[in-house]
Nucleic acid binder design. Structure first.
Lengths: 199, 199
DNA sequence: TCAAATTTGATACGTATGTATTAATCCTAT
DNA sequence: ATAGGATTAATACATACGTATCAAATTTGA
């Protein structure tokens, strides 16, 4: 799919609209307008609003997968602790680069309908299970305290990493800080690593 | 306002609907139906959808204030660290008891429109500023590492506390765990305290 | 008891939405 | 050049929404 094809422009616009307004909050007319095209093109390329939404989610999860796996080849040469630090860092970079994914997930989680079930079955379950497995290994190697259940560990760590970017509009509004700027991202990485791994 | 008055039943129903579907996702017809009454009653008591929504938010923030201030009288007799533990615990209890507030805040944060500005100006700014001040004191007393900026500290801590309950529908769906049960809440409190305060 | 406040039920209006269809036009690769 | 895919533009339809109005019925409190 070429970068500037109508189909890809629609995907980009839909990512922005669904990410900023949720599924029900965004309209196909709005998406078509943002992509400088028309509703007919959506019907032609994606057939329905729901299919377009699924294409957006699939695309974002592919990007997440790439981001997480980015340094996988280097893992054998890393300590258990460095693996956690590395994947935490890469995950935070991803959250900053594609905040739409977590916004979409959270929108659907709050509404708790068929679309959440679709995300859970097709994408999230896999990621959570893999994260849980990795966390458990790190925990066995003394990176995290052993008394905490792995599930709590995963959710606390993921939340700590994500939420600053989810709350970006508020932070900007209340403190005038743009959390997507590189130095702010680095500060956040340092904070999370230090707090969760008492480095 | 009596517990079972139409006005209070509307507020309850609206809390549930707005908490589970967001502002645009919820309809006044749905709220009226859930409260076993009709649209006319909404018009009569709250005049508009937006006013009803504001009443819900005001009510939830009042409950938050009560929860946070609950043990305030005991603070002078507590160590800086115990103050943090106590307020963290009370905050987590609140998040579990009224998950609708954080859902509403997050919905509006994602959409980043006039309603977010209203929440920020009328409620959140105050809470964040107070939390920041308390965090700074705790940090000066060695409860938290001093290298981290207070803003990052506040957001990481708040996120770690909230998110498990925001993700409740997913956790239930993926792991069959009800995070609102008392033992799960306690496990979460322990996890957050241990991870953030390396107790 | 009686007036005021509250509640019900119905109707209506304008607007926005997702979906669908169709015909014409443009682009591209064979 | 030509066929098939891609794109545009316009129109249409049923549905749901927030808001508004109004009359009647019911409840409440002095």
């Amino acid at each position: 799919m070429k970068q500037d094809s109508t189909k890809s422009k629609l995907l980009q616009a839909a990512t922005s609209v669904f990410g900023n307004q949720g599924y029900s909050g965004g309209s196909v007319r709005q998406i078509a307008e943002m992509a400088n095209t028309n509703i007919g093109a959506i019907k032609y390329h994606y057939s329905s609003k729901e299919q377009l939404w699924k294409a957006v989610v699939n695309h974002l999860f592919n990007k997440l997968s790439e981001a997480i796996m980015q340094d996988f080849a280097l893992w054998p040469s890393m300590s258990p602790r460095d693996r956690v630090v590395n994947s935490t860092r890469n995950y935070i970079y991803f959250c900053a680069k594609y905040p739409e994914l977590n916004r979409i997930i959270l929108s659907e989680t709050i509404q708790n309908g068929d679309r959440l079930h679709w995300i859970a079955e097709n994408h999230m379950r896999f990621f959570i299970e893999r994260s849980t497995a990795w966390m458990a290994i790190a925990q066995e190697n003394g990176v995290y305290p052993k008394e905490i259940s792995v599930l709590n560990l995963v959710f606390v760590a993921m939340s700590a990493a994500q939420n600053l970017f989810l709350m970006a509009p508020f932070v900007e509004h209340a403190f005038g800080i743009d959390v997507f700027k590189n130095d702010q991202i680095e500060k956040h990485v340092d904070a999370v690593v230090k707090l969760l791994l008492n480095e």
